[in-house]
């Protein structure tokens, strides 16, 4: 026993060093899975409060930019609305009109229903390998894990950690997960990020026979947790890989992550039902 105590006494520093490093490794390992721990993220109460204080100061400096971006978004939405109205008029002019009785419930099957909640970005990073954004909304405001986050112009990310008043969002600038994406022609692929450049995303593994023009838009699909048809970005470069006849599309991100100021957290009411069904089929398969 005496020898043991002497041993501990002699190598105390080394043992302490090893113990602390093991604690760190455990923390890293737990956060690197998609279900991390909540307490050690920027969504916890104290850190959130400090970030909110800073944002309250910086808010006023960016009001002008924010106004402009909101105006632009309004114009875009107005355009979309007017397009819808226009096509409606065209239908009226056509010779065949078939009215659907309003009581008939089959005329609108809602397989997805979305609630949009606004949130302010109080912390943002673009330089790390996995970038996180902190929002000033938490489960008190109805935010839950795995909700989609979009900005006025395009996709932002997915809610990872939620506390009472804050939530942290894993932005699409990460190397952990890809996002399901769709070209305007309907070709489906996945979009990922290669670290280093916060403006450029890569859509990989598109067959070579699919013709893609520079400037084509890339949207989200209804397969992922994002609502469908949200703009991801525009193609600005193509690279054909001779080896397997696939092409890489380089996409300029629609969301400007450098000056993100507000975001919408999107809740899909039907998501839980879809998830349960999909999970039950996968468990059956494995059995």
């Amino acid at each position: 026993m005496r020898n043991f105590i002497l041993f501990i006494h002699r190598f105390f520093n080394l043992l302490l060093f090893i113990a602390l490093e093991i604690v760190c490794i455990l923390l890293i390992a737990r956060t690197n899975t998609l279900q991390g721990i909540d307490i050690l993220s920027s969504s916890n109460a104290i850190v959130g409060m400090v970030l909110q204080k800073r944002e309250n100061v910086l808010y006023y400096f960016s009001l002008k930019q924010m106004n402009d971006s909101l105006l632009k978004e309004n114009a875009r939405l107005q355009l979309q609305l007017s397009e819808n109205n226009y096509s409606f008029d065209e239908l009226k002019d056509s010779t065949i009109t078939q009215s659907i009785p309003p009581k008939d419930s089959t005329d609108k099957i809602r397989y997805a229903q979305y609630i949009y909640r606004t949130a302010r970005v109080i912390n943002n990073s673009i330089e790390a390998t996995n970038n996180y954004i902190t929002l000033n909304r938490g489960y008190n405001h109805g935010i839950q894990k795995n909700m989609a986050v979009i900005s006025g112009t395009g996709v932002v990310g997915r809610v990872m950690y939620v506390s009472a008043n804050y939530s942290s969002v894993l932005s699409i600038l990460n190397v952990k997960q890809k996002v399901s994406a769709q070209l305007a022609s309907g070709t489906i692929g996945s979009v990922m990020w290669e670290e280093g450049n916060p403006d450029v995303l890569i859509m990989e593994d598109i067959p070579q026979q699919v013709t893609v023009k520079i400037g084509d838009s890339v949207f989200t699909t209804s397969y992922s947790f994002f609502p469908p048809h949200v703009l991801i970005g525009k193609v600005f470069k193509k690279k054909i890989i001779k080896k397997n006849n696939l092409q890489y599309l380089y996409i300029r991100s629609a969301t400007n992550f450098r000056n993100l100021q507000y975001a919408y957290v999107v809740e899909n009411i039907k998501a839980a039902e879809k998830k349960t069904l999909e999970d039950s089929t996968t468990t059956q398969k494995t059995k």
Binding site: L20, E21, R30, T31, I37, L40, S42, A128, N130, Y132
Partner: peptide
């Protein structure tokens, strides 16, 4: 780490 959502990485390097 707390502020950057990198739980443990800065701590590991610092130790």
């Amino acid at each position: 780490d707390l502020f950057n959502n990198t739980a443990g990485m800065h701590a590991f390097a610092c130790v």
